[in-house]
């Protein structure tokens, strides 16, 4: 089984995140880079599939040179090798362009299954899985909280507002996962020591067969027109219990879809 897991490096969610004033793109230098949290679940699921069915897990990352740290962590968790798509021409690419660039890179790695987190904590578009499956012409299973592989069939539970759907597709396929699917492992000491020896292939635009005119900020289909700092957190709502406190809590939780 050729399993490719897409890993994005994002600014640490614990540090303040900023857009740059000159081109409205994310200031990646301003904060420490970490693996996008949902991608850690994707890595874990990829490793579990490999452990159950054999094969090889390849990490595919598109991002600047400093994304190497995140690639090493994914390898330390147990992935076998990595492909790092890195080129200044990719900077500022939007979701549509990113899906194109990743499609091209997947042309080099091949795949039976592509796994990714259902969204990133920085851009939060949550559309990459859909765009990618459209470009690749393979089925998409999004928001999966359970995945089973049975021969060439993939069965999954897909989270919905009302519970979950059971869906099934034929491999190859693209699968995006949510945090309920598993508990990502920590890299073991041996994993950390082994990670440095694992192959990381670095691809530029030309290596991956990416047309420079279709990627990058200048060619993006979307544009950030304006942005502002997030408003300071407002004072919480105080509910006085007049015998209906429980009902009010339940009402609040239901309005936020927690229950």
């Amino acid at each position: 089984m050729n399993i490719v897991v897409l890993v994005k490096q994002v600014p640490d969610t614990e540090s303040p995140r900023k857009l740059k004033s000159d081109d409205s793109t994310l200031d990646r230098a301003a904060a420490d880079g970490v693996i996008n949290e949902l991608d850690e679940y994707a890595i874990e699921e990829a490793l579990k599939i490999k452990e159950a069915h054999g094969g090889e897990v390849t990490v595919l990352t598109m991002g600047p040179a400093k994304a190497t740290d995140s690639i090493r962590k994914a390898l330390a968790m147990g992935a076998d090798k990595a492909v790092h798509l890195v080129d200044d021409g990719l900077a500022g690419s939007d979701a549509l362009q990113t899906s194109y660039a990743i499609q091209q890179a997947l042309g080099r790695t091949g795949f039976d299954i592509v796994i990714l987190g259902s969204e990133s904590t920085d851009a939060r578009t949550g559309v990459l899985a859909a765009m990618l499956s459209e470009r690749l012409g393979v089925p998409q299973i999004t928001l999966a909280n359970k995945v089973e592989i049975d021969g060439s069939a993939i069965k999954a539970q897909r989270v919905t507002d009302y519970g979950y759907d059971r869906v099934e597709a034929t491999l190859p396929a693209v699968v995006s996962v949510v945090e309920k699917i598993n508990e990502p492992r920590y890299p073991s000491f041996k994993g950390i020591m082994a990670a440095k020896k694992k192959p990381v292939e670095t691809l530029g635009l030309g290596d991956a067969g990416i047309d420079a005119a279709q990627v990058g900020l200048a060619n993006a289909a979307t544009e950030v027109v304006d942005f502002a700092d997030a408003p300071a957190r407002a004072q919480g709502q105080i509910v006085t219990d007049e015998g209906d406190g429980g009902a009010k809590i339940a009402e609040f939780l239901a309005s936020k879809k927690f229950v």
Partner: peptide, 15 residues
């Protein structure tokens, strides 16, 4: 070393 720093990061996360 890179490995030592990766070890620190992993242990800090577990901690």
């Amino acid at each position: 070393t890179e490995e030592r720093r990766a070890l620190r990061a992993a242990v800090a996360e577990l901690g």
